[in-house]
Design a protein around this nucleic acid. Structure first.
Lengths: 227, 227
DNA sequence: GGAATTTTGGAGCGATGACACCAAAAATAA
DNA sequence: TTATTTTTGGTGTCATCGCTCCAAAATTCC
């Protein structure tokens, strides 16, 4: 799921570069007093809810339940943490995303209908922040956030390319019209998903997102071409 | 175009409440050395490009070409400036937006096709920042930005309601199928526009946005109902 | 001209941002 | 036990944030 990762900084300790952890299970030295994975999850949810700029360092370590010292012992910087949190998010979101696109029991059109329905569900679940951590991140930000911005642009382009690839497989399999412009159709569904993320953030209920997804499926190509 | 405006702070000087200006044309006292409207435009473009959190006070007054003293003499706060900049943006964007939706020479479906085409054009023009100042603003931010967040949510809801109203007029006029769920169809086109804003920010060219808009028009209801 | 009014330049303020430093603490290895 | 390694608590730092204050400057009113 993850494309080339752009990291803000190189790890200071190059014995282990990504992620930074010196005492993985049971090494010498004082043991970690916190669960690194759980702390990362907490940071991810805070970034997801508030964005990178909207999340302060103190709020982060508070949510992670650790001190500044412990933080910098296990992570390189706020920016590096954001990269890791993004990877963690994509590991999770990539599961349902790719599972649906690669489901061999359904045809291409059905796969995208399922994808949009799942998006409506996942964007409005109660056990994590609304919407999506990728869709709207780094779109308007200061020049100092260039690294993060480029990373998010790449993540968005990557998910779009995954959708286009699935459509091309559909063309090859014969369940998508051969004249279909897969890149454009993927860009369209990508845009719809981004728009659903905005709606979710603004409080739209699951059913509303579901209907948006069903309307979006009206653009699926019929037997003849479209361009 | 502008719905109920939520202001961050009340103007300190209640002789003139919105906008704050004591020496409008030619009053007593030292005259303003800068063009307030031009400074506001400059601030608007910076906010548009970088977002609220991504724009610092020093960058703002630098782009506006004024000092901190002059700033606080003519504006109440960064937040109040953002509200004014947003209003200024909506005054401008509302022009083409409403002009298309109220064009009496075209039917409802054509109006929305024009609307999406114009969106593709306006989101990718070279004489101002890419995308839209409203579509993605305040979606992920800190709790301290509650006022701004709620303001942007309201602006987005308002433009969606304007689209729904236009559709209902189409139903009344008979050029939109009577069983159409106008609120849902408007939510769908609203989502598409938000997605086009993301694509524009990520560097998608005008033609790509145009094709997304044309694909989105495939969801327009035929003679029979859809829900 | 003098008084009143308003804006401007310039310095500075308290709070917060992200992070660095270092000695003490807690583990393992010998 | 002692040496070694690693993490932790606590404090400090340096820059930036949005904003304030005040005396000087520039205008109009009388």
């Amino acid at each position: 799921m993850t494309p080339k990762i752009i990291q803000g900084k190189k790890a200071k300790d190059d014995t282990v570069n990504n992620p930074k952890v010196r005492n993985p299970k049971r090494g010498r030295g004082r043991p970690l007093v916190f669960d690194r994975a759980a702390a990362l999850q907490a940071a991810m949810k805070l970034f997801w809810e508030r964005g990178y700029e909207g999340t302060s360092f103190d709020e982060l370590i508070d949510a992670m339940g650790i001190s500044a010292s412990s933080f910098y012992n296990s992570f390189d910087s706020k920016e590096a943490l954001y990269c890791e949190a993004t990877s963690s998010y994509l590991d999770w979101a990539g599961q349902w995303f790719l599972a649906i696109l690669n489901d061999p029991s359904i045809d291409t059109k059905t796969a995208f209908a399922h994808l949009l329905a799942a998006t409506a569900d996942e964007f409005t679940r109660g056990d994590h922040p609304l919407g999506c951590m990728i869709s709207l991140a780094g779109t308007h930000c200061s020049p100092g956030m260039k690294n993060i911005r480029e990373m998010m642009v790449e993540h968005r382009a990557f998910s779009e390319s995954v959708m286009a690839d699935r459509m091309r497989r559909g063309v090859a399999n014969g369940d998508v019209p051969p004249a279909t412009d897969c890149d454009m159709l993927a860009a369209y569904y990508s845009a719809v998903v981004r728009g659903m993320a905005v709606q979710a953030r603004d409080g739209a209920p699951r059913e509303k997102l579901g209907k948006i997804g069903r309307l979006a499926m009206q653009a699926w190509p019929q037997r003849s071409a479209e361009h």
